[in-house]
């Protein structure tokens, strides 16, 4: 029933021997009284594709956003590139990053792709793609432009380089957003439901781009509702329920032989 044919040969070779790109340990996040993450651990080694699945409101986005400190974790450890994010308590007792420069350095290693694309509307596609390399990473403008043209060609948008995002379809915008994330040559790509805001007929073109990246060994953490796709590209699947990891494992196990009742029901409902 579910296509397994395109499973990359690379798929399981990356584990264990490769360095750990992301390490999350016993992460808690509270929004005021609301306890959204209740001790989540997660690890992504180089070359791994971690898929995070789970119902709406289970904390998937929050977990992803804690990795690059778009949300400040309440407690727990987040390590990116072997570097642990240092937190401190501010005057109100909230945990906040201790070192802004460290956060900015870590963020510039993580290519984030959002559900709503979030391209900068006052810039053309090429300007969107070179923005971070030129202004954050200090790459020379002409070098960045040459690189950006290659990336736009890769996601099939070469001829749209001078178009503003508002004139493009959602699928095109999302592919441009993927090119923007690739332009920083990220250690890890973070995807937060990259196809959830798209019309059904546009989902395929975006999944194809992401699938190609996975097959060439890009490390990624991917929040998705596309179960078939997760099964195809993921090396490891994490099922989040109510702020906790309910079950995790290789995709064959999660989708083929789930243990948890909740996961079984989740797959039945969504699949």
């Amino acid at each position: 029933m579910i296509a397994q044919g395109t499973a990359p040969a690379l798929k399981h070779t990356a584990q264990n021997s490769a360095a750990e790109a992301i390490h999350v340990e016993n992460l808690h996040k509270k929004f005021g009284e609301l306890h959204v993450l209740k001790g989540v651990s997660l690890s992504a080694r180089d070359g791994e594709v971690i898929a995070i699945i789970g119902g709406s409101g289970s904390g998937k986005s929050t977990l992803l956003r804690c990795i690059n400190c778009l949300e400040n974790p309440t407690s727990g450890i987040v390590r990116v590139n072997g570097e642990e994010i240092r937190m401190k308590a501010d005057s109100h007792g909230h945990t906040v990053p201790a070192d802004r420069k460290q956060i900015e350095r870590i963020r510039s290693k993580l290519g984030m792709v959002f559900q709503n694309f979030n391209l900068w509307s006052h810039m053309t596609l090429i300007e969107n793609v070179i923005e971070v390399p030129v202004h954050v990473l200090g790459v020379k403008r002409d070098v960045a432009i040459a690189e950006a043209e290659k990336l736009l060609a890769r996601v099939g948008l070469a001829e749209k380089r001078d178009v503003y995002p508002a004139y493009l379809s959602g699928g095109q915008q999302q592919r441009a957003a993927i090119a923007r994330a690739l332009a920083i040559n990220p250690r890890v790509m973070l995807f937060d439901e990259p196809t959830s805001a798209l019309d059904p007929e546009l989902i395929g073109e975006v999944l194809k781009v992401i699938g190609d990246l996975a097959r060439e060994g890009r490390t990624m953490v991917l929040v998705t509702h596309e179960m078939k796709f997760a099964r195809e590209v993921a090396t490891h699947v994490v099922y989040l329920y109510n702020g906790l990891v309910e079950e995790e494992g290789p995709p064959e196990q999660i989708f083929g032989a789930p243990k948890s009742e909740r996961l079984k029901q989740f797959i039945r409902n969504i699949g």
Partner: peptide, 8 residues
């Protein structure tokens, strides 16, 4: 948010 996420 995107700008923050890219380390600006």
């Amino acid at each position: 948010e995107a700008a923050r996420a890219f380390g600006m």
